[in-house]
Computed example of a mutant assay.
Amino acid sequence: MSRRRQIYEGKAKILYEGPEPGTLIQYFKDDATAFNAQKKGTISGKGVLNNRISEHVFTLLGQIGVPTHFIRRLNMREQLIRQVEIVPIEVVVRNVAAGSISKRLGIEEGTQLPRTVIEYYYKDDALGDPLITDEHIACFGWASQEEMHDIADLAIRVNDFMSGLFAGVGIRLVDFKLEFGRIWDNDFSRIILADEISPDGCRLWDMNSGEKLDKDRFRRDLGGEVEAYQEVARRLGLLPEGDTTVLDLEKHRKNREKK
């Protein structure tokens, strides 16, 4: 498929004009950022793996009735998606204390929370994506009360499904980030799941060893980022044991482009 006009470039993805009205092409980059882009780097092959993992999770969510923007994967780094109006709220679902909630509330990292916690953050890099409440969302009109009910319901459904999915392959779903968008039909809109679900936006710990299999390896200078992402893909059945074909093909493509 020929590359079309670029619509938007974020920290981990680029959006291009799609082949049909109402569609976009989502391209997964190898760029890695942390701490609101204060730390930057590259994880070679990350985009390829995130494309496959996100495709897999979104496909399964679609099969259980969760509405998403995903249409199909086009190639190693690109997906065809529905164009949505992004709700400017990052939704963080927490099952285990880790990261900012541990720092804010003094809860030891790794503590199982008594119940799942849903947090909302305002999507604004310049402000550092601040934590917000339902009152802020209502006050500034970022989403209606009905939309927030839909978002919370979908977040819990996604969490229930993904917790089981990852537990089945020996991975503890600690927390994860979701983004939602509006699909319009004349004057009416509905909320659907957008963005991606991958080790970039999830904390995934090995159930036995506690080893981190996500972007915390980059945030905390632990190393082994590619291997961690590969391990998640292998456990989900997307990359056979010992097989690095996906990344080898990507390396071959890059070498061909240099010639």
Rank of each mutant, 00 (worst) to 15 (best):
L165E: 06
R104Y: 00
L213W: 02
S44E: 07
I64S: 14
L222G: 14
V158A: 03
R94V: 12
G110H: 08
L61G: 09
P88C: 06
I89M: 07
S100Q: 12
S163G: 03
V246M: 15
I71L: 09
G22Q: 04
A126S: 08
I132D: 07
P240T: 03
L15D: 15
M148I: 04
R172G: 05
K39F: 06
P21G: 09
G62R: 10
D214C: 12
A138V: 01
P67A: 10
R182N: 02
T33S: 15
S44R: 12
Y229L: 07
G106Q: 00
R157L: 02
E250M: 07
I86N: 03
L15N: 14
C139F: 15
E17D: 09
R72Y: 10
H56F: 02
I81L: 14
Y27V: 03
A98M: 15
G141H: 11
V246Y: 07
I71A: 05
T111K: 12
Q112L: 08
L24E: 08
L24D: 11
D30N: 15
V174Y: 08
A32N: 05
T116L: 06
V93W: 00
G99C: 10
E227S: 13
L238T: 04
V84E: 13
V57M: 11
N50M: 13
I156Y: 14
G201P: 09
R190I: 03
Y121D: 02
D187E: 05
R190Y: 03
I53Q: 08
K259S: 09
E196C: 02
I14A: 15
